[in-house]
């Protein structure tokens, strides 16, 4: 994920509205993504839809750098969007926290 000086960053909301170690769903245009607050100012963003049976990943349990899908427990790495010990991948998006606000670069997802 390479962001440049031309990257478009969208303000999502303030950090305190993201519960720690949980995911929150964000809708924007055709995007349906899940933004995770891992604690200590670390945030991750991936597509919300599980590659297995389309479960809402934002509702999963967060453990370290992973989320477990709430439907059938597929484990996904929040950094890369790749399923862990299984096949499948979701898009991941660059996230930045600045001045206690969370920004996502939707166009740079990969």
């Amino acid at each position: 994920m390479n962001t440049t000086e031309q990257t478009k960053w969208y303000l999502i909301s303030e950090t305190h509205l993201f519960p720690e170690r949980e995911g929150k769903r964000v809708h924007f245009k055709d995007y349906d993504i899940a933004v995770f607050n891992l604690g200590n100012g670390r945030f991750r963003a991936i597509d919300n839809t599980c590659p297995h049976k389309q479960g809402p990943l934002a509702d999963g349990i967060v453990a370290g750098e992973n989320v477990f899908c709430p439907l059938h427990a597929l484990k996904i790495d929040l950094g890369s969007g790749c399923a862990v010990e299984a096949n499948g991948k979701v898009r991941s998006y660059p996230v930045q926290v600045y001045n206690a606000k969370v920004y996502v670069a939707f166009d740079e997802g990969e």
Binding site: E5, Q6, K8, W9, F28, Q96, Y103
Partner: peptide
Amino acid sequence: KEALIGSP
């Protein structure tokens, strides 16, 4: 929604 160009 308007975007910010370049890193916030």
